[in-house]
Simulated scan of single mutants.
Amino acid sequence: MPARPGPGGYGSAVPADVRIAAYGVLVQDGAVLLTHWNEEGRTGWTLPGGGLEDLESAQQAAVREIAEETGYRADLGPVLGVDSRFVAPADRMHPNGDRPLHALRIVFAARVTGGELAHEVGGSSDEARWVPLDRVAELPLVSLVPLALGWWREHR
């Protein structure tokens, strides 16, 4: 049986690199906590979060990344959704020959439990801020933000 095209037009036989990441949707007082991703000339506003490190659970990664990128400690609620996205080799931040990237993004509801707002130093984001929900669409967003906020609204 021939390989059927998968998402993004890739056949199931095409090897892909996989990146698993975890994020938190933190909303309070009508505002959502966003971070400004700024890496290798690519920028946009996103949710606090990032890739899992070795032997780290998705929950551990989300809590660690929220702290690193925003200065806040957070507790996680339920998984709001999982996004499975394929990135063509030419569009990857770190190309690996002709291999596409399968980005698996796990999004949790979360709430601040302590800490103070702070910007990440030496990482992939350079600013964190509370953005009123009715102003989010005015910002240049990464694709995950509108998707995750839709999940958050469904779970409220």
Rank of each mutant, 00 (worst) to 15 (best):
W130P: 11
G115Y: 00
Q59W: 10
V27W: 01
V145H: 00
G122D: 10
A148I: 03
G9N: 02
L52P: 08
W151Y: 10
A88W: 04
W45H: 03
V63S: 12
A103P: 01
E116A: 15
G97C: 05
G9W: 02
H155M: 07
L34D: 03
L80N: 08
L149S: 05
S143N: 07
D98P: 01
N38S: 12
E116D: 13
L26G: 10
E39I: 10
L117G: 12
A118S: 13
W45Y: 07
L55R: 14
D83E: 15
M1E: 14
G150I: 04
L139S: 01
P100S: 07
V107G: 12
L80P: 07
R64Q: 12
V136E: 00
D17K: 04
E116N: 09
I106H: 03
T113D: 11
D134H: 05
E120P: 03
R92G: 04
V131R: 00
E68C: 00
Q60R: 10
R105N: 12
A58G: 07
H36N: 06
S57P: 02
A61W: 01
V79C: 05
P5K: 13
V63H: 00
V121I: 14
T113M: 09
Q60W: 08
A13D: 15
L144F: 02
A21T: 14
H94A: 14
I106N: 03
G44L: 03
E65Y: 04
P7V: 07
H155I: 04
P89I: 04
Q59G: 14
L33K: 06
D29S: 14
L147Y: 05
G150S: 13
G122F: 04
Y23A: 08
V112H: 05
W152V: 05
P146M: 10
L33V: 11
G122K: 04
P132F: 06
P100V: 12
M93F: 12
N38R: 08
L76A: 05
Y10Q: 07
G11N: 10
G81W: 09
S57T: 15
A88N: 05
G97I: 01
T46A: 08
W37E: 11
E116K: 11
A90S: 15
E154H: 07
H102S: 02
D134C: 02
V136N: 00
V27S: 06
G44E: 08
R92M: 12
R64V: 14
P78C: 07
V136Q: 00
H94I: 10
Q59I: 06
V18G: 01
A118F: 01
E39L: 12
G123F: 05
V14Q: 04
D126E: 11
L34V: 01
H119K: 02
Y10W: 13
G24Y: 02
V79A: 03
W130I: 07
D75E: 15
L55F: 06
T43V: 01
L34C: 02
V25R: 00
A67Q: 14
V27E: 12
G41W: 00
N96Q: 13
P5D: 13
T46V: 08
G122W: 03
E40G: 00
E39K: 06
W45S: 04
A74M: 07
V107L: 04
V27H: 06
E53V: 13
E68Y: 06
